[in-house]
């Protein structure tokens, strides 16, 4: 389940702002969604290849330039669709789990 949904977690992190890889990977690692920071890059490459994110380089006053990721229109649409599906899925599971506890 994690493998299938992690890419949407990345899209969600990019919903409101651009972020660079180190930021994204640290956030996901801190949340326990990736086992190590580096394993997020194959996922980012796939998202880029699928046209769901795009990148640009930004200079930084605090170190080397950084590649920033941002959502494309396709990425935003995919995230919106997933959000609807996820909430339905989550509600269904919650109902089952709550029912199981009640019995």
């Amino acid at each position: 389940m994690r493998r299938g949904s992690i890419e949407f977690c990345v899209l969600a992190l990019l919903r409101d702002e651009e972020r660079y890889g180190l930021e994204l990977s640290r956030q996901l690692a801190a949340d326990g969604l990736v086992t190590s920071e580096g394993t997020m890059y194959p996922l980012l490459a796939r998202l880029r290849q699928d046209g769901l994110v795009e990148t640009s380089w930004h200079e930084s006053s605090q170190g080397p330039p950084r590649r920033y990721y941002r959502l494309t229109n396709e990425g935003r649409a995919a995230l919106d669709a997933f959000t609807v599906q996820w909430r339905q899925f989550r509600d269904a599971i919650d109902n089952l789990l709550d029912g199981g506890r009640a019995r």
């Binding site: 493998r3 690692a29 086992t35 190590s36 920071e37 580096g38 394993t39 890059y41 194959p42 996922l43 490459a45 796939r46």
Partner: peptide
């Protein structure tokens, strides 16, 4: 923190 190269490769190869 970045992770073992083999672990990263396994993730990349899986996809």
């Amino acid at each position: 923190h970045v992770g073992a190269p083999e672990e990263i490769a396994a993730e990349a190869l899986a996809a």
